[in-house]
Structure formats: C-alpha cells, structure tokens
Amino acid sequence: MTPSRVRWHLGRVLSRQFETEAAIRLELDVPTWPGNVAGAHLDIRLTAPDGYQASRSYSLASSGESTRVVLVIQELPGGEVSPFLVRQLAEGEEVEVQGPLGRFFVWIPAEPEQSPVQLIAGGSGVVPLFSMASAREREPKGADFRLLYSVRSPRDEFFADELAELSRTIVEIVHTRESAPGAGRPPRRLTREALAASTFPASLSPRIFVCGPTPFVEAVAGWLVELGHDPAQIRTERFGGSP
C-alpha cells in the first residue's frame, strides 16, 4: 500500500443489504483493487452530470487480499453523499473509489506483536475495528484481542452475527440508550470506570485503537491516559460525519 498505488478505481455494487434501519452494507467488486488493509479506509467519489464531484471517506469492513470491498455506511440525515449511498445506489451500478488509505490506523498481522490489542468502538466506528478483528481471526497465532463496542441499542449494532462468532477476540457490547430484552441491566453511558473494567489494564501495555465520533474518541482517549496507558500506544480515528 505505497502512495503510488493510490488512485481511483471503478467499483461495481455486487450487493446491498440494510445492516440497521439507517445503515447499508455495500459489497463492491473492484477488479483493480490492491487489497484491503485492516483498519484502512477509502474515498468514494460521486460525479453529477454537470461535473460536480463530492467525495467522502469510509472505513473498510473487509480485510485481506481481495478485490471485494465491503463497507457499512451510516446515513447522515441531510447529508450530501450518505443518503444516496444508503437509499439509492443500486446493485450493478458503479462508483469510483480510491484506496486503501491510511497507514496509521491499521493493524498488520505480520508485525511481531508482543502486547495485546484493545479495540474500542463508538457507534459506526466499529467498522475498521471489525476489519482488524476479522484479520486477527484468520491468524492461527498472535496477540490477544479485545473489543469494547459502545452502541445505542441492539437494533443499532453492526456485524451482530459476525461479532458473536469471533473466537479470537473477546467482545463486550455496551448499550447506551436501550438494553437488549432480558439483559438484566439498564442501558448506561460508558464511563472511565466501566472502560477500565472492560479493557486490558495499562499494566499489560496494550496497543489501543479507538474509533468513533469525535466526542467519544476524545473522552475515551482522555480516560485511557488517566488510567495509566501510554499515549504512544493509543491510536485514534475520529469521524464527525461531514454531511
């Protein structure tokens, strides 16, 4: 994934399926795609008949060498790009994509890994972390993985079935607004204490990836430092949902 490989590719929609009420799972076939890097993202570019272009970044849900690209896109009401992708883009249609992008917020299985890996997701920030957990799943040996996923309600969960099947990542889901029926505990916002209880302690020096809306990432990154984690071990990716 050197920068020289970054260029626009033409992708065709193989399938589309609602992941939640307001998010779509798009599977693209991109014949010239260099491959998916766990945690990386791509830019999608739409061109109007008059030549006007709009592009947005979306994390890859897929990982590994493949020309198949999977995205899960949350609709931002009033947005310029996401409502089109979620509601209108049809199977068989083409879009331009550029990537895979980013070398900072990625997990490369081949790297020798001494410390465990802690993934922390807020809402649709789970997408690149799911990609990392999937990549870890394919490796027979490697670091211990844990995922803490903060999401409004069971209905808003991405990858609900896939997360339940992960065998090499310990998954804990925190519902912030509405619990699962019979969960036996009320919904709760993530706090520093809950974070500490559900993640690898600083004494294990975990590498930490945090992805979510900007306020979530800033709060969690601040708590992690207060809990004694080395800031150099914490990698963050914020999305604000530009409309």
Binding site: V6, H41, L42, D43, S55, S57, Q98, G99, L101, G102, F104, F105, P213, T214, P215, T236, E237, R238, F239, G240, G241, S242
Partner: peptide, 11 residues
C-alpha cells in the same frame, strides 16, 4: 462544527 482528524486527508 465538529472536527475529524488527519486520517481523513489520506486520499
């Protein structure tokens, strides 16, 4: 407006 971070400028 809310900000994102430098990851968004990779492309």
């Amino acid at each position: 407006m809310t900000h994102v971070d430098g990851n968004a400028l990779a492309g």
